[in-house]
């Protein structure tokens, strides 16, 4: 029992220390900076900046979401995406920041809204970077498919699944007797889950097509490789032509 008490005390101290560090504020001459327990894709904490304004306080994200996406060269996406997200919360944007001016008795809510919006902007733009990877694979994939199978691609790469949902893929080929569906898949959860759902829907058809995911690297997918492999065949974009042919068989 003694050891349990010590252990509990130790845990309480660790919990107190962790909670203390989850939110921290620093005050400068004219500004306060608050680090919040929301984590940007890079691993930095979302940070909100407060300065005095005519009506109370100006609460902004200090341009930290912009800095976050600038690191991956995606800063051109900031104006539109930040504006879309901020508008939903009644916030404003400029070239670099998400912000709002509020009476002092509303700063708590404003801090939360600015912080969440700042995080959403960075997260959405990082996710889109993954979509760009998918487009790169897709472009390469189409060339490979023509080289391996000739001109057998359907002009409209769409199929209807057992649920009656219509799905669009990177390519649908009419091979001998049954179609083959190829989908370029980026290493991002959304891309993997979308492909998995679509392939499961096609697999439930009476005459199911061959379903093939094309990825940059199986090893890089980690645990998500298993999700894709349950739904269909998986090959790498750099595999030799005979692998493409066997996957479509």
């Amino acid at each position: 029992m003694v050891s349990a008490v010590i252990s509990a005390n130790t845990l309480s101290a660790a919990v107190d220390a962790a909670v203390r560090d989850l939110v921290s504020a620093r005050h400068w001459d004219e500004a306060s900076l608050i680090n919040l327990p929301l984590i940007f894709p890079s691993g930095s904490f979302v940070t909100v900046k407060l300065t005095p304004s005519a009506g109370g306080a100006r609460v902004s994200d200090g341009g930290f979401a912009f800095r976050e996406i600038e690191s991956i060269g995606a800063q051109r996406s900031f104006p539109r995406i930040a504006s879309d997200i901020a508008t939903r919360e009644g916030l404003l944007t400029n070239r670099r920041e998400i912000y709002v001016e509020v009476p002092v008795d509303q700063i708590q809510r404003a801090i939360c809204e600015v912080a969440v919006s700042s995080w959403q902007v960075a997260d959405k733009i990082y996710s889109r970077a993954a979509d760009a990877e998918e487009a790169d694979i897709e472009e390469y994939l189409r060339d490979r498919l023509v080289a391996v199978f000739g001109q057998r691609m359907r002009p409209e790469p769409k199929m209807i699944g057992a649920s009656t949902s219509e799905w669009e893929f990177s390519a649908v080929l009419d091979l001998d007797g049954r179609p083959a569906v190829f989908q370029a898949v980026a290493n991002h959860p959304n891309a993997v889950f979308r492909t998995s759902t679509a392939f499961h829907d096609l697999a439930a058809l009476d005459s199911a097509p061959a379903c093939v995911s094309v990825v940059r690297s199986k090893a890089a997918l980690g645990a998500r490789f298993g999700i894709l492999a349950q739904a269909g065949r998986v090959i790498e974009e750099g595999d030799p032509s005979d692998v493409f042919a066997r996957a479509a068989a």
Partner: peptide, 27 residues
């Protein structure tokens, strides 16, 4: 960093942050 095209996507190779205003980094 490697900037493929100015102002477009780039790849950071290594970064050092000194006294970051966003606090520490959570791994």
């Amino acid at each position: 960093r490697i900037s493929k095209t100015p102002g477009r996507r780039c790849v950071p190779l290594s970064r050092i942050d000194w006294r970051s205003l966003t606090g520490g980094h959570t791994n």
